[in-house]
Structures are given as structure tokens and as C-alpha cells.
């Protein structure tokens, strides 16, 4: 479980996060949504320790990140998997070498077992036949799947995904959403996704928090968001004609 308590983050004169509270439970796909500039990327980077927070606490299963020693922080990072917006695969390494990288760097497994683990992860994301291709030779959807395989290679307790559907067609987006949901439940991972994609939110969001101007303005599940009265939700989710029609249809049906 990850807990954020009253997290504050400032850049110079600008306060980007103004005391955000959130609890992300294991086995759940937790989603952070919000408009551009709402602070969701800064919040995720603060959770990951890539930004030093200026106030509040971040706890990973009770361990306060700000109190951890350098070594303890390094050990914690080994429990974290991250899927970046564009995959962030290492260009100079093949698909299998990308997945093997964290294993080779941090595990003491024999080479054969490492290879088996990497191949298992690639099979788990339905990518068994691209081991020796380079990132430049595969599609955007495949890159995301390799990134997921690399993220789960070390059997993480926490999985972070930054805009996992950006740049993907709707069909591939659904494949990625389902894959993340399955992996989250299968390995009981605490998954935190930062997204704009409302299809993805409604497909996979077990727990959703909406950020607006650096504060949490709504919290609930994918079933609750369609019925939420919150002004922030109305502004963000039901801005588009499509979602307005969806909401109207749901209300009419009831």
C-alpha cells in the first residue's frame, strides 16, 4: 500500500501540489487523472522519489520515504516497476536485453534462470517472438508491452505507469489496460496509473483520484465517476459530447 499524506511540492514561487492525500491499495488499479498542469505528473514523480517533496509524507507499506537512508531508498526502488509514457526502452539493447537489464543489474540468479524469467515476462505480455529486435524496430504498442515486461521482471510490489495509452490506437489501448489489470490482480501489485484517457479510466480504474490545480478534487471508482456530482468531474470527464451522451443514456436507463 502507498500512502500520500498532505504532499506539498513547490517549484520556485509556484506551488504545484497543495497538500494531496491519497491511499493506493494493492491489487487495485489506482488512477490519477486531471487536466494538463493539474499536477498529476509531479505527484507521480514525487511518489517515485524523482522529486523531493517540500511537505507531507509518502509511505510505502509504512516506510516513510523521506526518512529512509540512501541504501534503504535504493532497496525500495528495486520493489518498484515503472512504465514510462513512451516506454523509455534502452535503444542500444534488444527487447530481451531490455527485460534482462534489471535482473542482470540487481539479481544474483544464474544466467539461465534470468533468461527464463525474462522470457516468461515477455510471454506474459504476449510478446514471445521479438526477443532479438531493437526498440526502433517494433511498434508503439509493442514498446509499451516490453516496458511492462521490464517493469515486472523483478516482481515489483508497486507498479507505476505514466500515460500507458498515449499514442496507441483504441484496440491496443484496451489490450494494454487489460494487461495491466490482469498483472495487478495476478501478482497483487499496487498499481498507480497517470492518465488522461477516459476510456482507460472507465475500463480499468478500480480507484480514481482527480487532481485539479494541485489538490485532490474527487475520489472514487470507475462505477462512481459516471454518477459523480462534483463540479471538477463534470468539467473534466463530461466535457466531451460523447461522455455527455453516455451519462444521459445511463440516467435515462435508470
Amino acid at each position: 500500500m502507498i500512502e500520500a499524506k498532505n504532499v506539498v511540492k513547490t517549484f520556485g514561487e509556484t506551488t504545484v501540489l497543495k497538500g494531496v492525500d491519497a491511499v493506493f491499495k494493492p491489487g487495485n488499479v489506482n488512477m490519477i487523472i486531471g487536466q494538463s498542469g493539474s499536477g498529476k505528473t509531479v505527484f507521480m514523480k514525487s511518489l517515485l522519489g524523482l522529486h523531493q517533496i517540500d511537505g507531507g509524507e509518502i509511505l510505502y507499506d509504512g516506510r516513510n520515504v523521506t526518512d529512509l537512508s540512501k541504501q534503504e531508498r535504493k532497496d525500495l526502488r528495486k520493489e518498484i516497476g515503472m512504465v514510462f509514457q513512451f516506454g523509455a526502452l534502452f535503444d542500444s539493447l534488444t527487447v530481451i536485453q531490455n527485460v534482462l537489464f534489471p535482473l542482470e543489474m540487481f539479481s544474483n540468479l544464474p544466467a539461465k534462470e534470468m533468461l527464463e524469467r525474462a522470457e516468461f515476462c515477455l510471454q506474459r505480455v504476449n510478446l514471445p517472438d521479438s526477443n532479438h529486435r531493437y526498440p526502433a524496430e517494433i511498434s508503439g504498442g509493442m514498446k509499451k508491452r516490453v516496458a511492462i515486461a521490464r517493469a515486472i521482471a523483478m516482481s515489483p510490489k508497486y507498479l507505476f505507469c505514466d500515460e500507458p495509452n498515449s499514442g496507441l490506437d483504441p484496440e491496443t489501448s484496451i489490450v494494454i489496460d487489460n494487461l495491466i489489470s490482469e498483472i495487478t490482480q495476478e501478482f497483487n501489485i499496487t498499481t498507480v496509473i497517470n492518465t488522461h484517457d477516459m476510456n482507460s479510466v472507465l475500463e480499468a480504474g478500480d480507484h480514481i483520484i482527480l487532481l485539479k490545480n494541485g489538490t485532490k478534487s474527487w475520489e472514487g471508482s470507475k462505477d462512481e465517476i459516471l454518477y459523480a456530482d462534483s463540479e471538477a468531474v463534470q468539467e473534466f470527464v463530461f466535457k466531451s459530447a460523447l461522455f455527455k451522451r453516455v451519462k444521459k443514456a445511463l440516467m435515462t436507463r435508470e
Binding site: L50, R77, I80, M82, F90, M105, F106, F160
Partner: peptide, 17 residues
Amino acid sequence: GTMRVSEQIEALEVMGV
């Protein structure tokens, strides 16, 4: 520079490297 702008360096940092 390319590794930085394509978040490959951040990926290493998140891994604990």
C-alpha cells in the same frame, strides 16, 4: 542527451541504478 529526453535516464534512476 537523447537518453535524457526519452526518459531512459529516469528509467535507470527509478530502477535504483
